[in-house]
Nucleic acid binder design. Structure first.
Lengths: 340, 340
DNA sequence: CCCATTTAGTAAACCGTTTAAGGAGAATGC
DNA sequence: GCATTCTCCTTAAACGGTTTACTAAATGGG
C-alpha cells in the first residue's frame, strides 16, 4: 500500500498556489515573491516532495544517463576486466559532467530490443559497426552514438591500432625463433560473411599476426587457431583442446588477456612452466595483467583512455550539430614475465 | 539539426489513424482489424518509429532500472574489485528479470542530490544505514530500498558476519603467537558520533578484532591502527607511514583486500618478504585475491551472492506490499599464501 | 425486421513536470 | 488622472505515450 508519491500538485494544493508556482519556487524563484517562495519550499520539504526525474526527462529530452551497449550479459560485463577498465574511463567523464552510465545488455538476445527500453540519451557501442543490423535502427532514429572498436562514418568512432599491436606481438615471438605458435581467438559477433574470421577487433588482430608471419614467409595456420570464449575459462579450454589434439606449441598468442591467463592456467595444469616451457602473449593489458604470477606479457591498449575518449565524444554528440570525429589510439607490446 | 524523433503522432498521421490505434497495433493488436494493424506496423517500421521509453516510464511508473547507491565516484566504483563482484551478483538478477542496473554516485558530494536525478525504480544502498541523513528522504518518499552492509528496520537488509570473520582472522594470528599486529583500516562514512570508529562495516570488523584480542587479555592498541583509503595505494601508504613511524609489526590485519595488497606491495618495497617476514590477512576475498602473488589469505564473504540477494530483495520490494526481510550471510577465513 | 452483441476504431483523460502567454493589481511616469 | 510598466501569480499547452470510455458499423439471433 505505497501511498502515492507526493507530486507537484500535492504541494500546490497544500500551499494554496498553482503547480506553476511550485515549479518556479525551485527553478525560477525570482519569478515569485520571497514570502511565497519560501512558504512553497517549506511545504515541499514538509511533504517530502522531490520532482519526478522521469517527468522532467520527458520534457527536457535529457535523462542524464549515457548507455554503453555491450554484447554480454550484465553479469558478464562486470566480471570482465576489460569492460571494467573501459567503464572506469567512461566514468571519469560522467563524474566530471554529472552524468550516469548504464550498461545495456542484449534483451532476449537482441541489443536492438534492449535499446528500445533503456532510458538513455545516447550510446557508446562496443565492438559493432555502425551498419550492424542491431545498430542501424539507432542511427536511423538519429540517436547520438559513438562506435568503439568498429567502423562508422556518420558518427564518431574510437579505435586502437589492433593490427599493429598484434603484429608486434607475433613479430616478437617469430624473431625469437618460435615457429610452433598456437593462436587462441574469440568469435567475432555476427561476421559480415560466414566464417569470416577477419571481421571486427578479432579480425584486425589476426591480420596483424598474419602480416608478421608473412614477413617470415609463413602462412597463418588455421589448424593452430583455437576459437573459444574470451574468458579465463575459455582460454583454458582452448589450450586444453589443443593439447589433447596433440599440439605442442612453444608459444601462444592470445587475442585477449583473459584468454591468455586461462592458457597459462591450463598449461600449468598439464605440467608446463611459463615462460620456461612455453611463452604466452596476451592482448589488452588489463590492470590484472600486472598482478598475476607470472605477470603477463601483452599488447597494451589505453583502455581507460579509450573509455574516456568515447564518453567525451558522446557528450559532444549530445550537444548541437557536431561533426563526427575519428580517434585512433596507439598500442604497444609490454614485455613482462610470461615471455623470456 | 537533428530532425525531431518520430513520435506516435507521426505514425498515426501517416497511417491515417488515431494515436490510440498505433498504440494498439503494438500492445493490443487484437483490438484492431488485422489489415489495419499490419498497415500501422508497416508504417511505423518504415518511419523508424520506436516508442519513447521515458514517456512509457512516466505512465507505467517503471523504468526497468534499479539503482545501486555507492559512496564513490563512478570511476572509483568500476576500479573497485569489491563493487565489481557485487555488481556481478546484482547483474545476474537483472539479466534474469530483464532489468538494468545503474550505479548512482554522489552528485556534488551529495548522494541525496544524486537520487533526485536518477531515473530508477528503487535502490540498493551500500554501506549506509536506513536513517542516514542522505538516505532518510528516500525512505520517507517510500522509494523501494534494500540496505546492504547497514542497518534497517522498515526495509530489507543484507549483511555478512563481519564481526565473526574479523574475529577469526585476528584469532588466527594471535594463536600463532603474533603480538605485534598492525591494523589497517578505512574511514567509515559519516559516523554517528565523531571519532566513533565502531560505525558501520569498519566498526563491526574492528569489533571482531577487539574480541579476539580480549580473549588473549590484550587491548585493541589504537597506536597500531592506521587509517587510510580503501585502495591499493591507500594500503601501501598506511604501511609506509607505520614503517616510517618505527613500527615493526610481525603481521597485518587489513580491513579490505585492496588495502592488504597495498600493504604487501609496500612491505616488499622496504625489503620484507611476505609471508616469511610479515604475515598479512585481508578482508572480502575479491576474485583478485586468488590471482596475486602471493595469493592473499583473507576473510571470505560471498560478494556475488550478496549482490544477487540484494537485487532479489529489491525486486520483491518493487512488487506489492512485501514485508522487509533481513538476510545475514556467513564469512570464513581462507588461508592462502600471505600467511604461513 | 428489430434488438442485442460484437467488431473496429476514436476521443479524451492521464502520468508529473516545465514553459509560454496572459492577467490582476500595485507602482510609476508624465 | 490615465496610460504604462512592474511584480507576482495563474491558465493552458506541451512532452509522448497508454488506457478508459464511448460510438458507429457490422453481425447474429429469433
Amino acid at each position: 500500500m505505497p501511498n502515492k508519491r507526493v507530486t507537484i500538485s500535492d504541494v500546490a494544493r497544500v500551499a494554496g498556489v498553482s503547480r506553476t508556482a511550485v515549479s518556479f519556487a525551485f527553478n525560477n524563484p525570482e519569478q515569485l515573491g520571497v514570502e511565497t517562495a519560501t512558504r512553497i519550499v517549506a511545504t515541499a520539504h514538509e511533504l517530502g516532495y522531490a520532482p519526478n526525474p522521469i517527468a522532467r526527462a520527458l520534457l527536457s529530452r535529457r535523462t542524464g544517463v549515457i548507455g554503453v551497449l555491450v554484447p554480454f550479459t550484465i553479469a558478464q560485463s562486470f566480471a570482465n576486466p576489460f569492460i571494467a577498465a573501459f567503464m572506469q574511463g567512461v566514468g571519469e567523464v560522467c563524474d566530471e559532467q554529472s552524468l550516469a552510465a548504464l550498461i545495456v545488455s542484449p534483451l532476449d538476445g537482441s541489443l536492438e530490443q534492449a535499446t528500445r527500453r533503456a532510458p538513455v540519451d545516447g550510446y557508446i557501442i562496443l565492438g559493432l559497426n555502425e551498419d550492424h543490423i542491431e545498430i542501424a535502427p539507432l542511427s536511423r532514429r538519429q540517436v547520438p552514438l559513438v562506435i568503439v572498436d568498429g567502423d562508422a562514418s556518420a558518427v564518431s568512432q574510437v579505435n586502437v591500432d589492433d593490427e599493429g599491436g598484434a603484429y608486434a606481438a607475433a613479430h616478437h615471438l617469430l624473431a625469437k625463433g618460435h615457429r610452433d605458435i598456437l593462436m587462441v581467438t574469440f568469435q567475432s559477433p555476427s561476421p559480415a560473411h560466414e566464417n569470416d574470421v577477419y571481421y571486427g577487433v578479432g579480425g584486425r588482430r589476426l591480420a596483424g599476426y598474419k602480416r608478421a608471419f608473412a614477413e617470415y614467409g609463413l602462412p597463418l595456420r588455421y589448424d593452430h587457431l583455437m576459437q573459444s570464449l574470451t574468458s579465463i575459462e575459455g582460454g583454458a579450454a582452448a589450450f586444453g583442446v589443443a593439447w589433447s589434439a596433440g599440439l605442442r606449441p612453444t608459444s601462444v598468442l592470445a587475442l585477449s588477456d583473459a584468454m591468455a591467463l586461462g592458457v597459462i592456467l591450463q598449461a600449468k595444469r598439464v605440467g608446463l612452466s611459463v615462460p620456461a616451457n612455453i611463452e604466452v602473449i596476451g592482448f589488452d593489458d588489463v590492470p590484472l595483467a600486472q598482478l598475476t604470477s607470472p605477470q603477463l606479457t601483452t599488447v597494451h591498449q589505453p583502455i581507460v583512455e579509450k573509455g574516456a575518449t568515447a564518453a567525451r565524444l558522446l557528450v559532444e554528440a549530445l550537444g548541437e550539430n557536431s561533426p563526427p570525429k575519428k580517434v585512433l589510439l596507439p598500442t604497444s607490446l609490454v614485455l613482462r614475465e610470461s615471455t623470456r
